[in-house]
Amino acid sequence: MLTRTFLIKMTVLCLVISMCLIVSEVFVRIVIDDGMEYNLEMWKYARKLKRVAKHSDQGHQHIPDKSAFLMGVNVKINSQGYRNKEISITPSQGVTRIMMLGDSLTFGWGVPSGETVSSRLENLLNNSRKDKSFEVINTGIGNTNTEMQVASFLDKGVLFSPDIVVLNYFINDAEPIPRPTKNIFMKHSAAYVFISLRWGSFKRLFFGGEQWFQYYNDLYNNENEGWIRAKDAISKLSKYSHSKGIKLIIVNYPELHQLTPYPFDQVTIKLKNVADEHGVQFVDLLP
């Protein structure tokens, strides 16, 4: 009798839990998801436009010829896996080819393709220099670090014979390579993604924990593996560029939460020192 009662209670409990999960999933997908919720849009981006790369040091890559509507704009990946117009392997005669390496900032998260950094730079250069022509290729992939970007360039980007390579650097580029999650809920549940990430922010706000500025500064401890690997990647990129006569530029993008006083001056100095060590031009965009 106890066994039968227990089974009935467990069945009811499972049904209640299942209904709660279903309702929360429907609520998040229909009510919360307005197409501009950052974490949900990044989750869709990973599901719809990315795949695991063949080489582990590249982490993930875009799926060629895929498109999606993300963060309020249409995103189209070309046949070469870039958010860019189709590109010929051989540059046109007389055209200076610039290749942009980077993460979601370079990719152009939340802006139309014509408003990405690469598109704006190409228009600016061609409108200001009537004696020269420029082609700027956007190879940015969201949620990548410097190690992944350099590995992808040395594997595929080099085939396009750029004259100039710009490594667009952001402070989180010293993070470790993100690996595919084994969490089935994180893969398939919008509600789980939304609630788990919001819960993490809630805990940091009300229960302490490492703050964002401390987290970023800690990435640049000399013993941090991510920073060590980022420096090694810059060294590899520099050696290749010098050997092929390619001009390499490192452009440092500021973290915009707080510009004055800027809490990451020491990070900028460390990055500039790496650039100087390898004879690479360094551009800091901090106003």
Rank of each mutant, 00 (worst) to 15 (best):
G114V: 13
E115F: 04
L259K: 11
V165P: 10
H278T: 01
T3G: 14
N217A: 08
L40T: 06
D232V: 01
N273C: 08
V95G: 05
M10Y: 03
P176F: 06
S241K: 02
R204T: 15
R204F: 06
F206S: 11
N138Y: 00
M100I: 10
R198S: 09
L125Y: 06
V26C: 05
F69V: 06
P64K: 13
Y192F: 13
Y253I: 07
I250V: 13
Y240M: 03
Q211M: 08
D34E: 14
Q281H: 11
E135W: 03
I164C: 07
T106D: 03
L15P: 02
I234D: 00
S88Y: 08
H278V: 00
R179A: 14
Y215M: 13
F282G: 00
E223K: 13
K54R: 13
D33P: 07
I195G: 03
P162E: 12
C14D: 10
V12T: 10
L197S: 15
R120A: 03
G245N: 09
D173Q: 14
F6G: 08
V12R: 00
N172I: 12
G110D: 00
F213N: 11
L259S: 09
S201D: 15
N217P: 00
I250C: 02
K187R: 15
E210I: 12
H257F: 07
K182N: 15
R4Q: 14
Y253S: 13
N224I: 05
T96E: 12
A190R: 10
D34P: 13
V28E: 14
E210T: 15
S118K: 01
A174H: 06
L40G: 08
A233Q: 01
D276H: 01
T268A: 10
R97Y: 07
E37T: 14
W43V: 06
M42Q: 12
W109I: 04
H60Y: 05
P254T: 03
K76N: 15
L154G: 04
M148Y: 07
V111F: 04
L7D: 11
F282S: 00
I32L: 10
I269V: 14
S113V: 09
K203V: 13
L105Y: 12
R83N: 06
T139V: 02
H55T: 07
P254V: 04
N172E: 12
I17F: 01
I246M: 00
F206R: 06
N183W: 04
R51P: 02
V165I: 11
V117M: 09
K187Q: 15
D173C: 04
V111R: 06
K272Y: 11
L159C: 02
S92D: 15
S88H: 11
V75K: 09
